[in-house]
């Protein structure tokens, strides 16, 4: 027991040793903003107090989340994941087809090159005009914007399957479905996951643009609303919240990746 205790104490100390610059930065920031007394830069304590007040002072039964928090985060997260998942499904499907057929790749190559080169925010006004204000236009923006890294990585991954793995599958007479499910997709999975992770952070960016530019609710809309209403601590609160969200999404995805691709890490370490 004591051994475990000293061990955990030691790891806490080590973590503090790694993170020491974070509290230092916060303190310096607090002092600097207080002495400058500039409205655009509220002190971190004021930001945190405001965040607590708007979002995290709810009942314990709702994990302390207020109704406003649920209203702000819920739809944003739903759009984010909805768009990302739709793009993932489409990207992997089309990417696998292209990766397995060099003929199809030849036909579609110029369109893909053009599509991935269009800066996705430029299409926000177009989707808004086409689909009206609100969720459909935001989903379309996210799907169109984030499909490219998924598509390109899937093509790359399915094309890069080891020739001997494919030959083994042929020798043992795998059916097409077996070859796809048991050989090609698993082999391409590390690349696909890299694309999915890029796409996830891009999806958050496009969500914010779509909500700021043509939103009626959600955290990006709140950010703009706070800025327009001179509620600077609220605006900073939204920024901090978005940073947290980005951090959590990335960490959660890495955790998932580590589980799903355990074989890949192992295989790489031994080679």
């Amino acid at each position: 027991m004591t051994h475990v205790a000293t061990h955990s104490v030691r790891s806490v100390i080590r973590a503090l040793g790694r993170l020491w610059l974070v509290p230092v930065t916060l303190v310096v920031w607090e002092i600097a903003t207080r002495s400058a007394a500039q409205p655009f830069f509220p002190p971190p304590s004021a930001i945190l107090a405001r965040m607590h007040e708007i979002w995290f002072s709810g009942p314990a039964s709702h994990l302390l989340l207020t109704d406003k928090a649920l209203d702000d985060f819920g739809p944003s997260l739903a759009r984010l994941f909805g768009g990302w998942l739709a793009a993932a499904a489409l990207g992997v499907l089309i990417g696998t087809a292209i990766g397995c057929s060099s003929r199809l790749a030849d036909y579609l190559d110029p369109l893909i090159e053009l599509g991935r080169a269009v800066p996705p925010p430029l299409l926000v006004p177009f989707f808004l005009a086409l689909l009206k204000l609100g969720t459909p236009a935001q989903l379309a923006t996210i799907v169109f914007g984030v499909i490219w890294p998924i598509l390109l990585n899937t093509i790359d991954g399915t094309r890069g399957v080891d020739r001997q793995h494919l030959e083994t599958a042929r020798i043992f007479g795998f059916s097409t479905a077996q070859r796809l499910r048991q050989v090609i997709l698993p082999a391409a999975m590390p690349k696909i996951f890299a694309g999915l992770r890029l796409a996830l952070s891009l999806a958050l960016i496009l969500l914010v643009i779509a909500e700021i530019f043509g939103g009626t609710g959600g955290i990006g809309y709140q950010l703009l609303y706070a800025q327009r209403s001179y509620l600077y601590p609220d605006m900073w609160g939204c920024l901090v919240m978005l940073g947290l969200l980005g951090y959590l999404l990335n960490s959660a995805f890495l955790l998932l990746e580590r589980r799903v691709l355990a074989w890949h890490r192992g295989a790489r370490q031994t080679n």
Partner: peptide
């Protein structure tokens, strides 16, 4: 020392700083 700061600042969706 700087890494934790980078790790936190980087995932902020960059367009969110435009209003600021």
């Amino acid at each position: 020392a700087v890494r934790p700061l980078i790790e936190f600042l980087r995932p902020i969706p960059s367009v969110a700083i435009i209003p600021l």
